[in-house]
């Protein structure tokens, strides 16, 4: 005779076991799902066209960069910038995270996607400039309290440079829409 409690326990185990077994897969799906959406167009790029593989890699690495930036600014952890940021961009955001800690501020970016236009790809393939129309929900917290919230359609001027196995964000500058 199985009691009601035991039955519930069994049901929980029955439900939990497949989830537990599938958890690495689940995490992977969740991780993939948590990547911001990046749509890259390079129709009018100059002076050199972009190779298909390069385009795929740039879009992928830019998405990873935004994921890392959002986590870094939310948790005030500058080391999350190491994988996809370099140069001015890394220095700038590292300084900001340090200041955020001092002011007891953290900023949450809820990312609703990026429409990215690559417009400059240097002849030697060493630099790429992009314009990003990002849809972001920005929440600023001070001392754990929400002090600002907005839905922003923000434009960014991006400079990316290739590394050994990925593209790095070297400059990420929010610009006024009229700059386009």
């Amino acid at each position: 005779m199985i009691s009601g409690l035991s039955r519930r326990l069994l049901r929980l185990v029955g439900l939990g076991l497949p989830i537990a077994l599938a958890s690495p897969l689940l995490l992977e799906v969740l991780a993939a799902g948590s990547l911001p959406q990046v749509q890259l167009s390079a129709g009018s790029i100059e002076p050199r066209p972009i190779e298909e593989l390069t385009g795929t890699n740039v879009a992928r690495d830019y998405a990873y960069a935004w994921r890392d930036l959002a986590q870094a600014l939310d948790h005030n952890q500058a080391d999350r910038l190491d994988a996809y940021f370099t140069g001015f961009a890394k220095d700038t955001f590292t300084q900001r995270i340090s200041d955020q800690k001092t002011a007891d501020v953290h900023v949450l970016y809820v990312d609703h996607g990026h429409k990215v236009k690559a417009f400059f790809y240097s002849p030697d393939g060493g630099e790429m400039q992009l314009l990003d129309k990002a849809q972001l929900e920005i929440q600023v917290y001070a001392g754990g309290k929400l002090i600002h919230q907005e839905n922003a359609a923000q434009d960014y001027l991006v400079l990316m440079t290739p590394g050994a196995d990925r593209w790095f964000v070297r400059s990420l500058e929010p610009i006024a829409g009229s700059s386009f």
Binding site: T92, F93, Q95, R96, D99, T102, A103, V105, V107, V140
Partner: peptide, 13 residues
């Protein structure tokens, strides 16, 4: 009031 200035590379309070 508490004043916050939040920029791409700097935060001041």
């Amino acid at each position: 009031a508490s004043f916050y200035l939040i920029s791409p590379g700097h935060v001041a309070k």
